[in-house]
Design a protein around this nucleic acid. Structure first.
Lengths: 110, 110
DNA sequence: CGATGTACTTCCCTAGTGGGAAAGTACTAT
DNA sequence: ATAGTACTTTCCCACTAGGGAAGTACATCG
């Protein structure tokens, strides 16, 4: 966790929301995830498969009563990747923030 | 600046690097930017145009001796958009971070 | 004065991504 | 048998990003 790594798989907007959402809970239902990121069934299904293939999420297919229910949660690997990606973002942003106070008041104006 | 907004234009990896880099300096040379993000001339030129069209960067074409030199810097709008995007990212990440400390030591482990 | 070089910009093409619609699957309910 | 639930897969489209090559504008070299 000490080497921040920018992860393009996680960085993509919808997957970032998805992974962040999953990082905030244990198991999340398919419908809850779909609602939280505002995707169609097909789009969510594909993103979940992508994340599963990457080893970042675990998919559980359980039955509630007699109806199937798909849930997902982050794996340890997924959490590590997410944490590292966040650190990578923080490094980028921290570098940017440093200079906000640097320039003098008159010479770089026009 | 109080309404964080996820900005897809800024979010894209190369532009995020570019904008963060520009946020850390005043004017940056074309060649410096190209080197910092590792792009070809054509790719950088296009991204710079994209950012300029969005009103996020200002392009200055000056002469050093008799050679043309293109430099770029963030506009106020660009800086605001970047700041807001960073806040939006922080909100996403903060929500995720909350649960990292929440679960007890034994029940959510396997 | 033509050839070459610098410093980009534009054009062309290609690969990859992401999303929705709709069909498919599996099983339950009527 | 038909419909509905809960996804998954297939098909297709739009868009993006990037590199290479050619173009532009001007300066320098021979």
């Amino acid at each position: 966790m000490s080497t921040p790594r920018f992860d393009e798989l996680i960085h993509a907007p919808t997957r970032l929301s998805l992974v962040a959402f999953l990082a905030a809970t244990t198991w999340a239902d398919f419908s809850v995830l779909r609602d939280s990121v505002g995707l169609s069934d097909s789009a969510l299904s594909k993103q979940l498969t992508t994340l599963q293939d990457a080893g970042y999420v675990e998919i559980r297919k359980a039955f509630v009563g007699k109806r199937p229910r798909t849930s997902a949660r982050l794996t340890g690997e997924g959490r590590t990747a997410f944490d590292r990606h966040v650190l990578a973002l923080q490094e980028i942003v921290a570098a940017a923030g440093r200079s906000v106070v640097a320039p003098g008041p008159s010479s770089e104006h026009g």
